[in-house]
Design a protein around this nucleic acid. Structure first.
Lengths: 203, 203
DNA sequence: GTCTATACAGTGATAGAC
DNA sequence: GTCTATCACTGTATAGAC
């Protein structure tokens, strides 16, 4: 079936099953059987809506991207500095947040496999590009208002996204505890370094 | 066979075959047949030295960790700032470096799968811990000498490692071009922000 | 639409010849 | 030590009943 023809309710169901299966087994060990086990449907039932396993995963990525975009957009502070800090807070996922943790690690595994899987590459790019653009937008506004120094908004946003993704691998996937609760201090420090000179207070 | 009993020459051969196979197919699609195809041996030949596919991958990780550790230690500048910049240069792999690119993306994929694979977790932790300790050592020395501000060496090193890993996923695996050649400007800027106040020059 | 049953290819790993 | 042949199993995807 054409992915766009799948009823939204069914897409959400499949995406949720894929999410649970990924959190339990990881992408490299993901099978259609395991997806079905997390769903109300049988394997064949899943194939009624999706033509392949990859299509099911792509459906999950689409839902995840929407979710993340909504979360980043929901920060309603007016101050660009506060908005950037809130966005970072969301990007650097806490160890105890079971659900986000599973999703973020799964996205990292899919992302690392993107060079070998054309079908998943585009949805992953979209997800990352959304996040990047959210941060870049906040930075752009802050630069205009004089809150931030005159940095490259997109490059700086990319640096933060990369650090967030890497922290997911380092702290959540590998379980490395170095640097305490995922780099919150370092991120705060980095955001400090972006502030316009007048606004900066460092001890 | 006990992994420690494998002759070093044979381990290097298998590790090299695993590296090539990973670069071509990624971890999720890695098979013992594909490893054998990149080696001079047959599948059964590989099993003479290693008891399982995971053991072959662990052998690759061990070799990769040694290689990376040697490269980071080889930076022979005396100045901590120069050493940190050289280490970052190595951590943020360039798009055109085919070989390192393959290795780094492969390590990222394995790392993201670590929660689901006990056998690979420890070698991966060792690899990352080595890198972390290299950077932390440089930072510690620089702080003592007054080159760097009094930051947390391990936390700061973790932030840099995370950013480097994330950049691998973002730029090398996904092929996102945002921020130009993998974040070199942003990294340089971040290192600037670590310099002790007296040493800093910003425009 | 959803199921059970199944086709058919490929998987990790082993046996046994050389 | 290294090979060819092979095993038992699991993988994705489809057929056809309901």
């Amino acid at each position: 079936m054409d992915p766009d023809a799948v009823p939204p309710e069914k897409q959400r169901e499949v995406a949720e099953a894929v999410r649970k299966a990924l959190a339990k087994h990881g992408y490299a060990r993901l099978t259609t059987r395991k997806i079905a086990a997390e769903s109300e449907k049988s394997e064949a039932g899943l194939y009624y809506y999706y033509d392949s396993k990859d299509a099911m995963i792509a459906a999950f990525l689409e839902v995840a991207a929407d979710f993340l975009a909504r979360e980043l957009a929901a920060v309603d502070a007016d101050d660009p500095e506060a908005r950037l800090r809130a966005a970072c807070d969301r990007l650097f996922v806490r160890r105890d947040d079971e659900e986000l943790r599973g999703v973020n690690v799964a996205v990292m595994e899919l992302l690392s496999h993107a060079p070998y899987n054309e079908e998943l590459r585009e949805p992953l790019r979209t997800l990352e590009a959304n996040t990047l653009e959210s941060l870049a937008g906040i930075l752009r506004e802050g630069i205009e208002r004089g809150t931030f120094r005159d940095v490259d908004p997109v490059g700086t946003a990319a640096f933060l996204v990369a650090a967030g993704n890497g922290a997911t691998g380092f702290h959540l996937a590998l379980g490395m505890e170095e640097g305490g609760e995922p780099l919150r201090e370092q991120v705060a420090d980095y955001v400090d370094s972006l502030l316009a000179d007048g606004d900066r207070d460092r001890d």
